[in-house]
Design a protein around this nucleic acid. Sequence first.
DNA 1: AGGGTGACCCGCA
DNA 2: CTGCGGGCCACCC
Length: 119
Amino acid sequence: MNDVLDDDEARALRAQRIIDAVAAIPRGRVASYSAIAARAGYPGRARLIGRVLGEAPNRLDLPWHRVLRADGKIGIPAGTRGYREQCRRLKDEGVVVKDGRVPMSAFGLDHDLDRAIWG
DNA sequence: AGGGTGACCCGCA
DNA sequence: CTGCGGGCCACCC
C-alpha cells in the first residue's frame, strides 16, 4: 500500500548513508564523489552525492567541502558562492587548492579507503 | 512518455 | 592537455 512511503524511506536511507560517509572524512583530507558513493554502499552513483549534499540541511554541519571530483577539482561551478566557500574552507584546514584543484595524491582519502578495503 | 540537466566517472582517441 | 561517448540516475518540465 505504501509504495510512495517506501520510496521516501529508501531515499532517506540513501541520504543518511551518504551523509555518514561524508561526515567521516577527516579534517584536512578530501575524498571523491565516487569514493563516497562506494563507501556509502552505492558504487557507480557519484551523481547522487552531489544531489544529496545540495539538499542536506546546513544544521548538520557536514564537511561537504571535503568532497571533490575524482580529478581533484571542485565540483561546484566556478564563480559561484559555494565554489568560493569550498576553497576557503579547504584552505582554512590546510588543504592546498590551486586553480580550483586539490592534489589528490597528497590529500585524497580514496587511496586510504582502498587500502582499508584490501587490507 | 520522452527529453534536458547536473556538486560525476571512466576509457579512449 | 582536450574532447567524445556511454554509463549512471533523480528530477523537472
